[in-house]
Simulated assay, not measured.
Amino acid sequence: MSEYHVPVMLAECIEGLNIDPDGTYVDVTFGGGGHSREIMKHLGPKGRLIAFDQDADAQRNLIDDERFVFVDQNFRYLKNFCRLHDALPVNGILADLGVSSHQFDEAERGFSIRFDAELDMRMNQLSDLTAKQVVNTYSVADLHRIFGIYGEIQNAKSLAETIATARLNAPITTIADLKNVISNRIPKGKENKYLAQVFQALRIEVNQELEALKDFLMQSAEVLAPGGRLVVMSYHSLEDRLVKNFIAKGKFSGEVEKDFYGNDNKPLDAVSRGAITASAEEIVNNNRARSAKLRIAVKK
């Protein structure tokens, strides 16, 4: 597990879940199983843990315990599979968003700018859309949109136009191809940051990450028992903004709605005031913790 992915803010996540030994919990991003194994330590004989992961590689880390159930699906299907396994309502839900260390380190998956490989970036390796298809088939307008919104890249339009022009001569099939094509658009001295933004944008589009996160958050409020906890860790501002808004307002934009009596009409209350961040010591030991933001909410 430790080689696969070192869990970030493990103690804070477990504390946030406020685990009832007899309760039912869901880890919607199983990965290396680090968070799940720690949850299991706090469960009694009647406790249950349902774990989700759409990446087939995660199945090498399964926990051999009759209280543990693994679901090989995207967490956007949370409610359906909790119902299928007769696990409604649940007492706590944990989500550790983004890409695991394992996925970054597997060169052939195409997630990392450190390696050369085919442009893939699929978290679910059975899905159809790849990063190669995005850069070779999307219109300039669509490329402009994903680079601007998902990558927050300032020269998103000229980047999109550069890619569209280059692919007329030859398909852009590998990470090296893409780097070469866009090299003149990369600000000097900011190469790594810029490429990371490009890759983030492509990865979010390939995996429909923000749409899946919205589906998950809406369902989490439905499947939680009153007093149940939602614990979500995110690694970039787009995800964190959705989580923050949903906890604060019960929706992703606009103002919180009021009921007939003028009370806030939202399913969750924030437990932590603002986002929790990793300690300086943890950041030294696990660089991935540097950008992590943890938010905890309770079902009303």
Rank of each mutant, 00 (worst) to 15 (best):
65 D>H: 09
59 Q>C: 11
256 V>I: 13
80 N>E: 15
140 V>M: 02
104 F>E: 01
101 S>G: 03
173 T>Q: 12
33 G>N: 03
9 M>L: 13
263 N>H: 13
264 D>M: 03
138 Y>M: 05
196 A>Y: 02
88 L>Y: 05
94 L>A: 08
76 R>C: 15
54 Q>F: 04
166 A>W: 00
127 S>C: 11
142 D>W: 04
15 E>V: 00
216 F>L: 15
31 G>A: 11
32 G>Q: 06
13 C>N: 12
259 D>Y: 09
214 K>Y: 06
45 P>R: 12
273 R>L: 08
135 V>W: 03
141 A>E: 15
9 M>I: 01
36 S>C: 00
288 R>Y: 04
97 L>W: 04
49 L>S: 00
114 R>M: 13
168 L>S: 04
291 S>W: 02
28 V>T: 15
19 I>F: 07
208 Q>I: 11
83 R>I: 00
21 P>W: 08
248 A>Y: 00
178 L>I: 12
129 L>G: 07
138 Y>K: 03
154 Q>M: 12
190 K>E: 14
78 L>T: 01
106 E>F: 00
296 I>E: 11
56 A>Y: 06
188 K>F: 06
104 F>R: 04
75 F>E: 08
121 M>E: 06
132 K>Q: 15
297 A>H: 07
206 V>P: 02
196 A>G: 08
66 E>G: 02
291 S>P: 03
237 S>C: 10
83 R>S: 12
195 L>M: 14
152 E>W: 03
218 M>R: 14
160 A>Q: 09
187 P>R: 13
157 K>F: 06
282 E>W: 11
164 A>H: 08
180 N>F: 00
22 D>V: 04
283 I>N: 03
187 P>A: 11
52 F>R: 06
59 Q>W: 05
15 E>Q: 12
197 Q>T: 04
54 Q>C: 08
144 H>D: 15
82 C>G: 02
282 E>N: 03
146 I>C: 05
185 R>F: 01
191 E>F: 02
234 S>C: 04
128 D>Y: 12
181 V>T: 10
176 A>W: 06
109 R>F: 00
271 V>M: 06
92 G>Q: 04
232 V>A: 01
10 L>R: 13
291 S>F: 01
203 R>Q: 05
207 N>T: 08
245 N>G: 01
92 G>L: 02
131 A>L: 04
98 G>C: 11
92 G>C: 07
298 V>S: 09
219 Q>F: 04
226 P>L: 10
148 G>C: 07
203 R>V: 02
166 A>T: 09
249 K>G: 00
242 L>W: 01
280 A>I: 10
284 V>P: 00
260 F>D: 15
216 F>I: 09
239 E>T: 12
100 S>K: 08
20 D>M: 10
75 F>Q: 08
